[in-house]
Amino acid sequence: MALSLTRIRAVNAVATAGSYAGAARQLGISQPAISQHIKGIEEEFGVRLFQRRNGHFHPTPLCTELCDAAERMVEAENAATRILNRQNTLLDGRISIGLGNSMPGMALIALFNKRYPGISISVETGSFEEITRAVIARRVDIGVLPNVLDDGRFRRELLVRQQVVAIAHPDSELAHLRSLTCQQLMQAPLIFRTKGSSTQRIVDRAFRAAGFEPAPLLSLDTRDGVYEAVANGMGVGFMWREGTGRTGGILRIPVRDMDRLYDEVVFMPQDEDGLLSRAFFATTRAFWAASQLE
């Protein structure tokens, strides 16, 4: 026995209007459709929903109880609609962003917030693999990562082009050099990221191409951990050049074996679309255009 929300609405409308005609006007459907919904419920469940007195339909006690449940169902439906519509309003919507690097993604979010201050923004951070999985699983609406494959799964918008650099403490023996090679880096204690990091993949590739297999002093699972280890003078680490807004005297030194530029992009599943995502992509285009004027 099916009891759909449409049939429940018909019951509630008749109870409110007192007639099939009034319920039909209220719901914007035909009077025969209202009659069919009411009679269908009464026949299928063997109940009486209304008593007719003086030309009006009066709900039975059972019908009154059913109408109370109907109102709760309608409230739940309206709440669900509001949740879905939050993805399509620039006044008080919500959007979730997955960041692989704090920067330049956070600068982009700041620009988006300036343009649309009413939008609530949640941010998830993680490795390249973690953020990619979050976007695919729709756990976040949009991802911001470098070196995302253009394989047809995602809509993409260019945010910035950047390279991986070495980061060193000012007191490091390598601090006076304007650029480095993998051979020179083999003489320093190295701080690596764990697997799953886009930065580490590029570092590993560069050392292999140069014929080296370094044994790092530390392998850390976050970019902040690498940065803090370098800041404490433990060795030389690696990061994307624009990967953080921190200063603090930590040096960013180009590595000649890692001089290729990679695209950092904003991306989302190809089959997703909405007002908020379009606004975020437009903000990304504005961010890229402004960076070209600097």
Results as ranks from 00 to 15, higher is better:
123 V>G: 03
209 A>C: 09
270 Q>H: 14
183 Q>L: 10
234 M>Y: 14
97 I>P: 02
167 I>P: 01
287 F>D: 00
27 L>Y: 04
48 R>C: 12
74 V>W: 00
176 H>E: 10
147 N>H: 07
223 R>M: 09
115 R>D: 13
183 Q>Y: 12
122 S>V: 07
129 E>N: 10
187 Q>Y: 08
49 L>G: 02
249 G>H: 09
150 D>C: 09
275 L>S: 11
56 H>Y: 11
71 E>K: 12
210 A>I: 07
129 E>Y: 05
285 R>C: 03
130 E>V: 13
64 T>R: 14
205 R>C: 12
290 A>S: 01
118 G>E: 04
136 I>K: 05
200 Q>F: 01
20 Y>L: 14
137 A>Q: 12
99 L>K: 02
164 V>Y: 05
102 S>E: 00
82 R>F: 11
114 K>T: 15
135 V>Q: 04
159 L>E: 03
162 Q>V: 02
220 L>V: 15
68 D>C: 12
175 A>R: 01
36 Q>R: 13
274 G>H: 11
153 R>W: 11
237 G>K: 02
169 H>M: 00
46 G>P: 09
155 R>Q: 11
94 R>P: 00
180 L>D: 02
218 L>P: 05
103 M>K: 01
272 E>K: 13
51 Q>G: 09
254 P>M: 07
279 A>E: 11
59 P>N: 09
86 R>W: 10
6 T>G: 12
190 L>D: 00
54 N>Q: 12
185 L>Y: 09
179 S>Y: 15
106 M>F: 03
280 F>P: 04
76 A>D: 08
8 I>T: 07
114 K>A: 15
192 F>R: 08
